[in-house]
Amino acid sequence: MRVAISGSSGLIGTALSESLEADGHEVLRLVRRPTAGAGEIPWNPSVGDVDPALLEGLDAVVNLSGAGIGDHRWTKAYKETLRNSRIRTTAILANALARLDDPPRVFLSASGVNYYGMDRGAEVLTEDSEPGQGFLPQLCQDWEAATDTAKAAGIAVCHTRFGLALDRRGGSLGQMLPVFRAGLGGPLAGGHQYWSFISMPDVVAALRFLIEQPGSVGIYNLTSPEPVTNGEFTRVLAHQLRRPAILPVPTVALRVALGEIAATIAGSLRMVPTRLVAAGFEFRHPTARSAIAAALEA
């Protein structure tokens, strides 16, 4: 297969690229810097610049672009960065694919857990659940809508709503590990909120499943089938690190330290991957215990 990936230097993009290349597939990375070889495609989303001719004849395109949700406080300027890095880049890529003579069979475009809101309690959230309200839910809805031109051109579009992808090198788990290894970890905001997680090997396997499985189209929750509360996640992580987890972080402390971003940590979203399971995908690490172990052993 020939697969183009935007956001290929991120945690998920790197892992997916390595997996595809290890199996002999050709990966073309969309890059914003000068290209370093035949395996890279130059583009500049800030000015709407991508050469459609370089996208001809691909089997699949995977769009993972987007500034980090938790990288900065949500100032007005950074919120605009979050929107542009998702909606503008996705629309540019979708428009380019729609103009191709030989378009890809499938276009996988990232979305996020916060499509469903910031806090839905213990409600089980499937792909058919209603969206939430607020900045992030609206961002996710607009992000998904930015692929409409590709859909109209007959390309199968898959929206992958990612949960917390567990990787010791970065993301939420990467930020937690130094604290827990120092014996300073504990439940966040009471620990009663559900965290929808997924191991990195399962992220990669699920993306490849959607690329390779004929008929893949529509919304897919990329999360473990067994979400757990933050308190349970904390206990499992501490146990595997052989450290205590007795220092809780109250909600008010999160708000002081993180501002508006704190709602993404304190809120409860209990997602399940109904459509992936129905399509026949099998998780290697369905539980928090196995997913955390896989991340620590990677």
Rank of each mutant, 00 (worst) to 15 (best):
A266W: 09
R29D: 02
P42M: 11
R73L: 02
A294Q: 06
G66T: 09
F107L: 11
P227K: 00
G218V: 11
H72P: 01
D71M: 02
S129R: 05
A165G: 06
T81G: 06
L30E: 01
V62H: 01
P225V: 11
G134R: 00
L28C: 07
G259R: 01
G121L: 13
A294W: 03
R284A: 15
R289K: 14
P178M: 07
G267I: 02
G231W: 11
H159T: 12
A253S: 11
R284H: 12
R86F: 10
A150W: 04
I87L: 07
S85M: 10
R73T: 05
I292R: 00
A60V: 05
D202L: 10
P286Q: 07
L93R: 02
D167A: 12
A253Y: 07
V31R: 09
W195K: 02
T264N: 01
A91E: 15
S199K: 03
S109D: 02
T35I: 12
G112M: 00
G57N: 13
R120W: 07
L173I: 14
L11V: 14
A110P: 00
S65V: 14
V62P: 00
L54P: 00
G154H: 12
N84P: 05
M271S: 03
R235A: 15
T287F: 01
D148E: 15
V113S: 03
V50W: 00
P187T: 03
A165T: 08
L136D: 00
L108T: 02
L269T: 03
H159D: 03
D49W: 14
